[in-house]
Simulated assay, not measured.
Amino acid sequence: MYNKIVLLCLLLSNFVAFAQDGSLKISKQVITLKTTRLEINNDGFPKQCDVFDVNTEVKPQKLLFEPMHFHFYSGAKAQEKMNGIGVNITTQNADSIVWNAISTSANLKMDVQGKMLSNGVVSYHINITAINDILLTTMNFHIPFEKTATKYLAGLGEKGGLRPDTVRWQLGNWQKIKPSVWIGNDSLGLYFSLSKPTTLLPSNGAMQINVKGGSMLLDVNADQITLKKDEQVSFDFNLIITPQIPTELRIPVKKKLKFYRKLVQQS
């Protein structure tokens, strides 16, 4: 038992050094940190996340089936069509990269502020403002994963292991079950957590993870959101792209959630 504890401590300390020892680089809208890449879409959200091995010619492993995105429904078949103006990089150095982007529709304006730190933590703050009075019957934030990148899951009440067919979480469970989850396979993955200040999710807000079509979908959703003209709500979350690291430094699935949650808290 003692030897196992010592080994785990060594693994964790080595992983911390690996995760935090890096400098950020950006070319156009692609941020690189060691063996991870984050490509930013024109709406400010991740277009693609991947991990690669600089020492081999193996093709990068892609995490996303399609870009992360919002859906805003004002009726059963009526959806606000958001048009992204483009990304503006406001801070760029080895320790942090900050960007913002604006998207608009006929009735909504969405301001996206993103920030990535050299320890791998990505934080998002989104303000959604009503241009006109509107009732959103349903709001969805989607993270569509490549199925091959979703073998394991830890969080949302799951202790960590093979991903169940369906995982659900309700906003009412916030005090008991934190809205944070790690999803991945043996060499890459993604940590996702909702931030407490978010105001976009009313009491009926929920999260669901299940296979949908050709992807595995993480869906954050809420119903019946009424906004008056100029009224604003926010949606805040954090991401960490799990780096590809040598087998001997990999943290067991059951330990990943606590490790990444602490990394976010320290940022």
Rank of each mutant, 00 (worst) to 15 (best):
R168M: 04
W174F: 13
H71R: 13
I97E: 02
Q208K: 10
L38Q: 12
Q29H: 14
G189K: 13
P246W: 06
A76Q: 15
L227K: 02
N204W: 02
G189I: 10
N210R: 13
P46G: 09
G84R: 04
M207A: 11
K28H: 15
I102M: 09
V122S: 03
P60K: 07
L33T: 06
L108P: 05
G120C: 06
D53W: 02
G44S: 07
S234V: 01
N14A: 14
K28W: 08
Q208M: 12
I85L: 13
N173V: 03
S96I: 05
D111F: 07
E80W: 05
L171Y: 10
V6A: 15
K115P: 00
E248K: 09
L156Y: 12
N107V: 10
L194P: 00
P202F: 04
T32L: 01
L239A: 10
N93C: 04
Q48D: 06
R261G: 13
N55I: 10
Y2E: 15
D219P: 08
K62V: 11
Q208W: 01
R168W: 01
A94L: 00
L190H: 05
A222Q: 05
T150H: 01
N119V: 08
L108T: 04
I245G: 00
W99K: 09
H71T: 07
N204S: 08
G120M: 01
N41L: 07
D230S: 12
L63K: 08
I26T: 02
Y260T: 08
L153C: 08
S234N: 08
A17S: 07
T56V: 09
G184A: 07
S103M: 07
W99Q: 09
D95G: 01
Q113I: 10
Q92P: 00
S105W: 00
F15R: 14
Y260A: 05
F18D: 13
Y73H: 13
K151G: 06
I177N: 07
G114L: 02
I102H: 08
T137F: 11
N210F: 00
V167M: 06
M68V: 11
N3C: 12
K59R: 08
K25Y: 04
S23H: 05
I143Y: 01
T91M: 07
S195M: 08
T129S: 10
I177Y: 09
G75C: 10
L24N: 06
Q265D: 14
R250W: 08
N132C: 03
N107I: 10
I102V: 15
N55A: 12
F15P: 00
K151V: 11
M207S: 04
V98L: 05
I97C: 04
I240L: 10
D133N: 15
